[in-house]
């Protein structure tokens, strides 16, 4: 499923929206989440899950192609914790 498929679902479920508007709304939602994470916020969507920014420490790594050792600088990453109801559907 791609962003286009997601936009189509939004479009089909909601009369009164054009295809283009549906696609703009999907983008808008993703942009808001991104912006929140950028500001260091956690983004909590009930019934879905929480996105949060994690600090990763510096560590030694290897270039998988050359085997050469290198230092991976500290950086941030986004983690997603699915909510209980989302999680439960799979186990």
């Amino acid at each position: 499923m791609t962003k286009a498929d997601l936009s189509r679902v939004v479009y089909e479920r909601h009369g009164g929206l054009s295809n283009k508007e549906a696609s703009r709304l999907v983008d808008l939602i993703l942009e808001f989440i991104k912006q929140g994470l950028c500001d260091g916020e956690r983004v909590q969507i009930s019934g879905f899950g929480t996105f949060l920014v994690r600090e990763k420490k510096e560590r030694k790594g290897r270039n998988p192609q050359t085997g050469e050792e290198m230092t991976i600088l500290p950086r941030k990453s986004v983690v997603f914790r699915p909510s209980k109801s989302f999680q439960n559907g799979f186990s």
């Binding site: 499923m1 498929d5 997601l6 679902v9 939004v10 479920r13 909601h14 709304l25 999907v26 939602i29 969507i45 019934g47 879905f48 989302f86 559907g89």
Partner: peptide, 13 residues
């Protein structure tokens, strides 16, 4: 409704 549709569609997929 739209926000819910987006997240529900992801779960359904």
């Amino acid at each position: 409704i739209i926000v819910d549709t987006v997240f529900k569609s992801i779960i359904n997929a």
